[in-house]
């Protein structure tokens, strides 16, 4: 086996443009090894969602386009596929903001996740039961209208719905957004279990660096559409700059890597020439 087939996803230097002019992602490269959890970290507007949508081909619906670079999923280039094709190939994105079908019940939401699969009623029931073993809370709420469930439950519905498509790879966009720490922990627990028991590879976009790195194998930090730093989750958690900027250890109000680098080169004028 070659090295590349061990990676379920390989992104090589992509640039993404919205409306033909606005560049949202300038130069992002990353790989997701099969069966691993990779975190894509960065503040608001860094380009995390854009990168995920480039992979799931949901960009077109927002007039966005990959203008440079390549994306390779499961050994094949991602080029002319549409979202439905990607789902059939086992790649499912859980969009930012949960996005449940508000007027459908919790169970109908989850069943809708199987839309791309040809399953009998009995098979759907089986799959549902399996999903409920991971998302115990949802079993109790199965008959509730999704729009009336809590934020945490909606996030679970969104992930459960995606799992119903039997993905090889999940793209999770800020699952912790707006949730209390305890719920965030519960959701990450489930995500980790799914990764281990179902072997699903995960690319996880997060602003919550701490939680994400504690649950991931590898991490990439992006800012304004550029990868600034990457490494194993452990090495990033121990990195001084990361601690300083993203883990809230710093007391100063610096905002991003650029500032840090600029500061360093100001303090050590020959920092870059060295």
């Amino acid at each position: 086996m070659t090295a590349s087939t061990d990676n379920i996803l390989e992104i090589d230097a992509i640039e993404v443009v919205y409306d033909g002019v606005i560049a949202a992602v300038h130069d992002v490269s990353l790989t997701v090894p099969r069966g691993k959890i990779v975190a894509l970290l960065g503040g608001n507007g860094a380009g995390k969602s854009t990168t995920l949508k480039a992979i799931s081909t949901m960009l077109a619906a927002e007039r966005g386009m990959v203008t440079k670079g390549t994306i390779t999923y499961d050994g094949k280039p991602v080029k002319d596929q549409g979202p439905a094709d990607m789902v059939r190939l086992g790649m499912v994105q859980v969009l930012e903001g949960r996005r449940c079908f508000a007027h459908l019940t919790v169970e109908e939401n989850i069943i809708a996740g199987a839309y791309s699969r040809k399953l009998s009623k009995a098979e759907i029931r089986n799959e549902l039961e399996k999903i409920y073993t991971y998302f115990k809370r949802l079993r109790e709420r199965r008959k509730s209208q999704a729009g009336f469930t809590s934020g945490g439950e909606q996030q679970m519905v969104a992930v459960a719905r995606a799992m119903m498509a039997k993905p090889k790879m999940l793209l999770l966009d800020e699952p912790s957004m707006g949730l209390a720490p305890q719920l965030v922990a519960e959701i990450f627990n489930i995500v980790n279990t799914l990764n281990q028991k179902e072997g699903v590879s995960i690319l996880l976009a997060e602003q919550n660096t701490n939680v994400a790195l504690r649950n991931a194998d590898y991490g990439y930090i992006i800012e304004t559409g550029h990868v600034m730093l990457h490494g194993t989750a452990q090495s990033l958690l121990n990195d001084e700059k990361v601690k300083d900027l993203y883990l809230g250890v710093s007391k100063e109000g610096r905002k991003n890597f650029r500032d840090v680098l600029r500061r360093e080169s100001a303090v050590h004028p020959d920092f870059h020439q060295a």
Binding site: S56, M58, A61, P83, A84, M86, V87, R88, V92, Q93, V94, L95, R99, C100, F101, A102, H103, L104, E108, N109, I111, A112, G113, Y115, S116, A158, R161, A162, M164, A165
Partner: peptide
Amino acid sequence: TKMGLGLRAVADDPGAASSIGIP
């Protein structure tokens, strides 16, 4: 029906429907 479920899903959120492969 499945199609009906798809329709109701699209009616609620076309983007989310598309993300799980509903054409």
